[in-house]
């Protein structure tokens, strides 16, 4: 193979032009060396390329996928404990959320007609590939669960599909954390420890919210408790994340969407275990607040990540600190 080796004379002794040395001309007059400030970016340009994902597709998918997965789990739990109303509402909700998820995922592709190319391979190194296969396993079961429940046909198959979708649903609701964390986007990547718990909590809260909104009061107790528990987990995970990330967590701490999401979820969850136990209208309002809260949280996380990708300081400074630490450790050793 031809290589860069521009030599006309073939002699190894002659210096090639590429051996010209910068700064060797000499003769620099002594000057008061002005203190150099350290530039930490190239004209303030981001180091990373901005994710091409759109919030109305991918942030929406984070929400809908969580809602679908956790609703299926809730449906399975409700069915096994003799709450057919909650089970049915959750199954139908899960199926709708699944459809919405697929719409968002496909809509965000540059070439939607090539969606099925995702099924060419299975790669554990790609959460998107893993997620596609989770959806492939979960989708038919969620569909069968809802269809058998609504029609009353094949109850045995329906039971199996309900349980299967309930189990697969936990994977669907949480893998999305790995999906966004497995990027170079500082906020998303650095938060990978808390992200799955935050997403699981947010998913449970939204599924609980949908259950409260749709199921008969008498059967909605698990939904109310799931909403409360989910909201608690979500809030704890979020505050731990914001603290642990230090300077990188700034976009999270600044996010108004995240604060709004927390407020809505907390209000919904607290209303859920108080007034919504007796009043249908209150239950519906609390459920709607929980759904809105979960959606705000997902959009908030999404936008905080975008903000961190678009500002070089979130990429450069942590890496510099890491290098300095490594250097210090080497010197100590």
């Amino acid at each position: 193979m031809s290589q860069t080796d521009v030599r006309m004379d073939g002699s190894a002794e002659t210096r090639a032009d590429r051996e010209a040395t910068p700064g060797s001309a000499g003769g620099r007059r002594e000057r008061l060396v002005t203190h150099r400030e350290r530039a930490d970016s190239y004209y303030g340009r981001p180091v990373l390329n901005e994710p091409t994902w759109k919030d109305h597709d991918i942030a929406a998918y984070l929400f809908l996928g969580g809602l679908a997965g956790a609703s299926s789990t809730l449906a399975a739990a409700a069915e096994l404990t003799g709450r057919p109303g909650l089970a049915r509402a959750s199954k139908v909700g899960a199926l709708g959320a699944l459809g919405g998820s697929l719409y968002c995922l496909i809509h965000d592709l540059g070439r939607p007609e090539r969606f099925l190319n995702m099924l060419r391979v299975f790669k554990v190194t790609s959460p998107m590939s893993v997620g596609t296969w989770i959806l492939t396993g979960y989708g038919p079961q969620a569909g069968a669960a809802a269809a058998t429940d609504m029609t009353g046909l094949f109850p045995g198959l329906g039971r199996a599909a309900t349980v299967g979708a309930g189990l697969a649903g936990t994977a669907l609701a949480t893998y999305t954390a790995a999906l966004i964390s497995d990027t170079a986007v500082p906020v998303w990547h650095e938060a990978y420890r808390e992200m799955p718990f935050l997403f699981a909590g947010s998913a449970a809260a939204s599924a609980g919210g949908l259950g409260m909104l749709a199921a008969p009061l008498a059967e909605a107790a698990p939904a109310r408790r799931a909403a409360l528990l989910g909201t608690a987990v979500e809030c704890v995970a979020a505050s731990r994340m914001e603290r642990r990330l230090g300077p990188v967590g700034e976009p999270l701490r600044r996010s108004r969407l995240l604060r709004l999401g927390e407020a809505l979820s907390l209000a919904g969850a607290l209303a859920g275990v108080t007034v919504a136990r007796r009043s249908r209208v209150a239950a519906m309002a609390a459920g709607a607040a929980l759904l809105a809260g979960s959606a705000c949280t997902r959009f908030g996380i999404f936008h905080a990540g975008m903000e961190s990708a678009n500002d070089p300081k979130y990429t450069v400074q942590p890496q510099r600190r890491r290098l300095a630490k490594k250097r210090a450790e080497r010197e100590l050793a």
């Binding site: 809602l67 049915r88 509402a89 959750s90 199954k91 139908v92 909700g93 709708g96 959320a97 919405g100 609504m150 949908l210 909104l213 749709a214 709607a288 759904l291």
Partner: peptide
Amino acid sequence: ICTTSWLA
């Protein structure tokens, strides 16, 4: 999603 689930 909310409407269908509510109807269900």
